[in-house]
């Protein structure tokens, strides 16, 4: 559970998920992120790269990091959708994915 998810606190507008198998640790997303909420990991991934990691809070969902990243699927950006109800089913799936990612 991230800080922003705690009851009573304002939720972040965005969320970031980075695939540690696809990221090559180039750092371009870190440079690109306006609120600077991405950092570099210490441990190396399977391929020997340090990888980008989300600080866990403060993402605005702007998508800038996605555009700056050279890897097709290393980054997924989620945005808060405020209208639960019909059509929210896929959004619900997305929430589960995002949560699973944040927990990894």
């Amino acid at each position: 559970m991230t800080e922003a998810d705690k009851p009573g606190q304002k939720q972040d507008r965005g969320r970031l998920c980075i695939d540690g198998e696809e990221c090559k640790g180039c750092g371009l997303c870190i440079e690109a992120c306006p609120p600077r909420v991405i950092a570099m990991s210490e441990p190396l991934n399977h391929y020997g790269y340090r990888t980008a990691i989300y600080a866990g809070a403060g993402c605005t969902g702007c998508g800038v990091c996605f555009m700056a990243c050279p890897e097709p699927g290393a980054i997924t950006v989620y945005r808060l959708v405020n209208a639960p109800g019909p059509g929210a089913r896929s959004a619900q799936v997305a929430v589960e994915e995002a949560s699973a990612c944040a927990g990894s």
């Binding site: 998810d5 009851p7 939720q11 965005g14 969320r15 969902g61 998508g63 996605f66 555009m67 699927g73 980054i75 997924t76 950006v77 989620y78 945005r79 808060l80 959708v81 405020n82 639960p84 929210a88 896929s90 959004a91 619900q92 997305a94 929430v95 994915e97 995002a98 949560s99």
Partner: peptide, 13 residues
């Protein structure tokens, strides 16, 4: 997310 929280949908993937 809690009951009252909004949900997240992918916008860039």
């Amino acid at each position: 997310p809690t009951e009252s929280a909004g949900e997240y949908a992918p916008v860039q993937s």
